[in-house]
Design a protein around this nucleic acid. Structure first.
Length: 446
DNA sequence: GCATGATCATGC
DNA sequence: GCATGATCATGC
């Protein structure tokens, strides 16, 4: 252990002008916690706030005083330092615990910027990412770094998609729609909510509208961060493709199957006839088509795209409403809209894989559609969610029905009739889920 | 034909 | 073992 003051000489530690030297020095942390390698004063040793680990590492390990300089942390090397939590997966690897928050979006500023000289690019084009094992009860200085640090170089890593994402976010600000931003607008780089959320939240000004917009920050989506981690684990270089239109890129993979019957597709991808009776048959077909086109579910996951199959009747109306994960009354009571899982899902981008029944009764694959939920409809979903929360606290048997909203409703969803959960009235009631109305899904296709 | 409740097959 | 996406079954 060493005791030092910030500003002490870095001699013999690392060269702040050299990315390689900083990286090598950072690697020495692997397998250790900050408190194991540096003396941490008592008054800060018990901090549990994760946001503090980054600045603690910067101060105590790199002997670098976090400043108010607007550029990257290691100014001379043009390198930004990030620490982020990982958790184990069942498969024995690690995954990102959450999104990697990068830098606040200033709506006034981004409107004036171009990509090449943007605040985002100057701050995030080169980042050293340190991963620590997240354990909720452990003070951050005792959390152990795992994996080698990761050098994120924007030029090499999905630059085109990230630039496209940045342009998408900026375009929305230019349209005066900063308040309508959602994580589903983009693929890898997202505009995530930042700040308190809920009622007392301070809204930010935006240049082309008088409507206040929630504070948002640029962030990399968790699945995108996980893709780095799992590449480190496999110690192979990141694979990347230059794709400007991810939606079109995905749609292309399905294109060869357009117009084919489900039977033909099943045969092509080698699904057995027995499976056709299964409730997930069409999803299997969708996965099969994606694979046949050289795509993968992994790829969708990485971009946080939610694939859903939709079956239309010959009238063009969907056969069913669309379900979302079930919830419990106890968790509903504790949550606000913006931390609910229904909110998180509806902010995502969807890939609809659409089948339609012909007038002769034969069902065919008619195409895919990339979609994300319009702002107004998300507000309506929020209203239904809040109404559900309110009513569940009074009587769990009286929840929003399909006739009460154009967009969403609540309905049972469980393993079977015995799958009951505790209500706030202390009784047992069927497990429930949020659903998007079939009629609402129909409206998307009109 | 739709609203509502109930359930299935799979993958993690 | 169980959550999930999706569909089935019933009654009005």
């Amino acid at each position: 252990m060493s005791v030092f003051r910030t500003g002490d000489s870095l001699e013999g530690l690392y060269d702040p002008h050299s990315v390689q030297s900083i990286l090598d020095f950072a690697k020495r942390l692997n397998g250790k916690s900050l408190a194991e390698v540096e003396f941490i004063p008592h008054e800060i040793a018990n901090v549990k706030n994760k946001g503090d680990l980054g600045s603690l590492v910067e101060t105590f390990y790199f002997r670098h005083t976090p400043g108010s300089f607007r550029g990257p942390d290691f100014r001379e090397a043009g390198l930004e330092l990030k620490t982020t939590g990982v958790i184990p997966t069942k498969g024995g690897l690690y995954k990102a615990k959450e999104r990697l928050v990068l830098t606040m979006i200033n709506y006034e500023e981004i409107a004036k910027e171009v990509w090449e000289t943007s605040t985002f690019l100057s701050k995030c084009s080169l980042m050293l990412v340190l991963f620590y094992l997240f354990e909720a009860e452990r003070p951050v200085v005792d959390r152990r770094f795992v994996l080698d640090p990761y050098l994120f170089q924007l030029e090499k890593h999905d630059l085109e998609i990230i630039k496209h994402d940045w342009e998408t976010i900026r375009a929305k600000v230019l349209e005066g729609k900063a308040h309508e931003l959602s994580e589903g607008d983009t693929y890898y780089l997202a505009a995530c909510r930042k700040g308190s959320g809920g009622m007392g939240e301070a809204l930010r000004k935006q240049p082309f509208s008088d409507i206040g917009a929630p504070a948002r920050a640029f962030s990399f989506k968790p699945k995108f961060v996980t893709s780095w981690i799992q590449n480190i684990d496999k110690s192979r270089p990141i694979s990347f493709e230059l794709i400007t239109d991810f939606g079109g890129f995905i749609a292309d993979k399905f294109a060869p199957f357009t117009g084919e019957t489900v039977g033909e597709i099943a045969e092509k991808i080698g699904a057995s006839p027995r499976q056709s009776a299964s409730k997930i048959f069409h999803r299997q077909l969708a996965v099969g088509m994606l694979r046949a086109g050289g795509g993968s579910i992994d790829e969708l996951n990485k971009a946080e795209i939610e694939m859903k199959t939709i079956r239309l009747k010959s009238s063009g109306a969907p056969r069913e409403s669309m379900s979302f994960p079930s919830f419990t009354f106890l968790e509903l009571e504790k949550q606000t809209w913006s931390d609910s899982s229904f909110y998180a899902k509806l902010e995502k981008k969807f890939l609809f894989v659409v089948f339609r029944q012909d007038s002769d009764g034969v069902e065919r694959f008619i195409g895919v559609k990339i979609w994300n939920m319009p702002y107004g409809d998300r507000l309506e979903a929020q209203r239904v969610w809040e109404d559900t929360k309110r009513r569940a606290s009074i009587d769990a048997r009286d929840l929003p029905k399909i006739s009460e909203s154009q967009v969403a409703h609540v309905r049972p969803k469980g393993r079977n009739g015995d799958d009951k959960i505790l209500t706030l009235q202390g009784t047992l009631h069927l497990r429930q889920a949020f659903w998007l109305n079939a009629s609402y899904i129909a409206s998307i296709f009109r």
